[in-house]
Write a protein that binds this DNA or RNA. Sequence first.
DNA 1: CGTAAAACGTTGATTAATAAACAAAGCATT
DNA 2: AATGCTTTGTTTATTAATCAACGTTTTACG
Lengths: 185, 185
Amino acid sequence: MNKLDRRILKTQESLKKAVIELMSEKSFDEITIQDIADRANVNRGTIYLHYQDKYDLLDKLIETHLNELGDMDQWACELDWVDALVPYFEYFEKNYLFFSTMLASKEGKGAPSSFRTRLLASFMEGFKGEIDRESGKNGELSEDVLLQFTGTAYVGVIEWWIRNGMPYPPQAMAKQVGTLLGRSL
Amino acid sequence: MNKLDRRILKTQESLKKAVIELMSEKSFDEITIQDIADRANVNRGTIYLHYQDKYDLLDKLIETHLNELGDMDQWACELDWVDALVPYFEYFEKNYLFFSTMLASKEGKGAPSSFRTRLLASFMEGFKGEIDRESGKNGELSEDVLLQFTGTAYVGVIEWWIRNGMPYPPQAMAKQVGTLLGRSL
DNA sequence: CGTAAAACGTTGATTAATAAACAAAGCATT
DNA sequence: AATGCTTTGTTTATTAATCAACGTTTTACG
């Protein structure tokens, strides 16, 4: 695989970190390109070498996280529910500022399509491959109903956990949520 | 004043931060240029664009801190002892890793001249301008004896404070040490 | 002591970021 | 509505960092 220049990685990482920090301080609409450049300590013109505009930057930030969550699906499916969910909750914990800020953000004209919506879609996509289609317990259920039910529940409980400052450690959350998901899927 | 390119500032800051972090993990002699480059996330060759070798990097790191302490002398002399010392102790607290690591480091052939020696010299230089030469209380004292006494005491108490994890806040230290220095100088 | 590996220091073409400048668009104020 | 300021988006020559490669020195091991 062609190796990416570390300067590019550093610039993009600092921009994404800057935008999330700023979003935890004020609404996305109030943030200027100069704000982001200052916080990231890069030249304002450099942002345009990487992104169309600040909406594109936010979009790519969200995409980065959703991709990493999606990558976890590759090997999580080999495990039982509880073991599979531990790294997810550890990921949410590690990126607490991102998730808490994004979930707290009001859906205005500023931000692209809702973060929560994209998160839900990502989880539903991942759950598709986890449905128990053999034991017969899901035989009379519509797939979309099942996915909407469990996906919404998962997003809801994650949002609750994040918004309440992660009252239980990732392992405990994985155990309980994993058990519940195992019952439903 | 000619403005320095931010890339230079960023590179030097990340290198200095890397070397101090590594020194808190292993002795200076064990640290390789590649270690520093990896930790700082820069190319190994870039280090040579800024420094002669790793000894030069450490030397410049120490110099940076001593210069900042020296800069504080410019306006600290306008204040009474207690008020003057607050920013110094806040500076020590802010740069805790640097001071704790440097004060803990054994003086081997690797590191340049002893950090403690340079720190003492810097403080003595600063105290020179603070000696009370009017009230007569210091009339019979040799300047070098006076400076050696107070400088060594100051370094010693700072070292104690740092090595013991800063048991008192900077303000409390400034008050007590300021009082003691005021008596002596 | 000899050998191999690791680390060092340098080189050069390329790339990414820089800083300043500029015109246009948006926003706030009168 | 006009004006002035702020922000945006772009351009360009320059600069700093990059990466790979190379020869030399140092270190570790048998």
